[in-house]
Design a binder for these strands. Structure first.
Lengths: 230, 230
DNA sequence: TTGAATTAAACAAACGTTTAATTTAATTTT
DNA sequence: AAAATTAAATTAAACGTTTGTTTAATTCAA
């Protein structure tokens, strides 16, 4: 009751852009909730409540819960595409430099947006909303193709040894995913207190970057004879 | 966790296997559905329908939808624990052999149970059902601790170079996860037809095993000087 | 005065769960 | 061995909530 009054006062003070801000605001809260509870686990009512708007406003702005979800991903998820394309086409960079830049890009982006990462991962995992599911896949496959092309060029140039490019990229992304999948788990593995936010910790970022780069480089540049297991 | 299972087994001492088979059957169908649509995305009615049992039977057997889910994980998710413990304590194995055996164990187990993997991953990603969520985490953390101990022993013995044990294990699991997260995506990456089942393909298994083992071994046994990026 | 923004209330549909009645199977009594 | 008794398994129907969405009235800014 009090809140709505306060809101009305602020509505007077901020003139026309209120509606755009409100849309933005709803999307931010939605990202938070979807990341926490998943798409089906989040109710419009809870979202409206947390965002402090009327239930009807969500359908008024976005049409439906699912369209809100689509708008969310459309708005936030294209992020790595242009970056990777740019790196791929930059002729001043060596292959190993490109790989390192891509690793840095992913680590930076995912660590700074844990919620988005969580939502994307959920959408990959669950195949309920078919076209959205497919969109996320396509985005990822395109990125993989670029990275694979870079690695294959390095192999042809004989600066890399023969590796499995698709699976190597899967290892890079998979490592980050494994860290992002659960904050609690991450803290336990990294021996931090329970309510620490590891994703904002520059030390974790450094550690993660270092591990991935070193592992990828060791794998790309050297060859050890595989041990046999009987 | 154990108690509930034991209790249920003793509760129906009826030798009539029909009921136990039916329970088994419901759990299998539930795994299928949860893997496809997630926990909240699956309705009791749809589950009952697909399993060809009355809706009430699910609550009759399991008490609730959530308890069914718990029973499911309790029944199927303990798998790697004993195996890793056994490998960890086996004194006839070298460190690198242990690591390879663990990699083989995970790959084999996950590839043979894609649904279970999917459900576990979802439960890590979503923190709705708190204790269940924590159980999955604990299971995973315990496994990590064993693997970390093995790697650290290898480092002390100077058969491994100094690496980040936690993150290396994250890379192993993460690579497998990345393959398991979406069948469609996996097929696109591996250039298979759309309705191919990659997880049953021995060639993919071989390829995955080979990549992970080789990458881990390169990383553990050799050292390359890290390139600087400005 | 007009069109957009916002609201409370109502909507039907779907949800997980419970009930109460009935069928089936096993055990006990005759 | 047949009948009676008891308990478990199964069912259809209903329960009260909650879901996403819509409506129709009201407030707001221009």
């Amino acid at each position: 009751m009090f809140n709505s009054n306060i809101c009305l006062i602020f509505a007077f003070q901020t003139p026309s852009n209120m509606s755009i801000d409100k849309k933005e605001h709803i999307m931010n809260v939605a990202m938070e909730l979807f990341a926490e509870k998943g798409f089906e686990g989040t109710s419009i009512r809870e979202l409206a409540n947390r965002a402090d708007v009327n239930i009807a406003m969500i359908n008024y702005y976005f049409g439906s819960k699912e369209k809100l979800f689509e708008a969310l991903l459309e708005n936030k998820a294209r992020f790595m595409r242009e970056k990777i394309e740019a790196i791929h086409n930059d002729k001043s960079l060596s292959e190993i430099e490109k790989i390192n830049l891509i690793i840095e890009g992913y680590v930076t982006r995912f660590l700074s947006q844990p919620g988005l990462h969580r939502v994307l991962q959920q959408e990959l995992l669950v195949s309920q909303r078919v076209t959205l599911h497919q969109n996320v896949i396509n985005l990822f496959v395109k990125n993989t193709e670029d990275v694979v092309a870079i690695i294959e060029k390095g192999i042809r140039k004989k600066v890399f040894k023969k590796v499995d490019p698709q699976l190597l990229f899967a290892s890079v992304i998979g490592t980050i995913n494994q860290i992002m999948v659960s904050r609690t788990m991450c803290n336990m593995l990294m021996e931090k207190e329970k309510d620490f936010n590891p994703y904002a910790d520059p030390q974790l970022k450094k550690r993660l970057l270092n591990h991935i780069k070193q592992m990828v480089q060791d794998h790309l540049l050297t060859h050890t004879e595989l041990q046999k297991t009987k």
